[in-house]
């Protein structure tokens, strides 16, 4: 394995002082790797992602991105550090048109670069071209997710973090989104993804982390994890709780 692109270690943090949600969770993602983050509700998966993205305060522990310490860096600075984050909900501006969403998403780039990035984006997501002057509120759930991903890719990030990209989408849309993500990894983008749908996540991820109560519980390849009784029981339809 090459030098890790992202290393988050021993993270403790949360929204309110005195009420930590993360209790020492850590994660590593190598360049070009597809990593899934799974675990029960309330395990702190989204919080871990938001902490890395600079939205939830980290009280102790460290985040390193491409060899630079970026703990508690404000989100807009992380975008410059080639990390992009797509939240689970409210991940596009519904009062702005598609084009305006993309133009704002490319604001960190120079004007020339931004123009090229927008052109690339419309090429990769032809659906968006048709609706470019439509406010995002008029889009379907799947189209919004496409827009959110397209926006995140504008700055050509090395690491793309997605919080439950399949939430609220039809099975057909899910497989469409996941195959696009797979293609991105193929092109060299590393992906860290929170996913409730463990089967779907295992079908695309290179590696997965299982989080419980803000701590790492297990990690390994999908093959390795699928062989474990605990995982089968809890997440792969072995009679356990389903989310």
């Amino acid at each position: 394995m090459s030098m890790p692109l992202l290393t988050a270690s021993d993270l403790v943090g949360g929204y309110r002082p005195g009420l930590p949600i993360l209790h020492g969770a850590g994660i590593q993602v190598s360049a070009g790797e597809f990593v899934a983050l799974i675990g029960p509700n309330g395990a702190g998966k989204s919080t871990l992602m938001k902490a890395i993205a600079g939205i939830v305060p980290i009280w102790s522990g460290q985040v390193e991105l491409a060899g630079r310490v970026v703990t508690n860096t404000p989100p807009h600075r992380l975008a410059e550090a080639e990390l992009a984050f797509v939240p689970q909900t409210n991940n596009v501006f519904t009062s702005l048109t598609i084009d305006e969403n993309l133009r704002l998403g490319a604001a960190a780039l120079s004007r020339g670069q931004a123009g090229q990035a927008l052109a690339r984006s419309y090429e990769a997501f032809p659906d968006l071209t048709r609706f470019r002057n439509v406010p995002a509120r008029a889009l379907s759930g799947g189209q919004r997710q496409m827009l959110a991903v397209a926006r995140a890719l504008l700055t050509s990030p090395k690491l793309l973090m997605l919080d439950e990209p399949s939430a609220g989408l039809s099975p057909l849309m899910v497989s469409d989104v996941f195959s696009r993500l797979k293609a991105l990894v193929h092109d060299g983008v590393a992906i860290l993804m929170v996913e409730q749908n463990v089967k779907a996540a295992f079908s695309v991820a290179d590696r997965a982390y299982v989080l419980t109560e803000g701590r790492n519980r297990l990690d390994g390849t999908p093959e390795h994890l699928s062989a474990m009784d605990e995982i089968v029981e809890l997440y792969l339809g072995g009679g356990g709780r389903k989310h």
Binding site: P74, P75, A79, F93
Partner: peptide
């Protein structure tokens, strides 16, 4: 303008502006 877009965006969802890479 980018700033103008960012102002409209901020009115809708302040946190997302930073995630979009714009300094809120």
């Amino acid at each position: 303008t980018r700033l103008g877009l960012a102002m409209r965006a901020y009115a809708e969802n302040p946190q997302l502006v930073g995630i979009y890479g714009y300094d809120s």
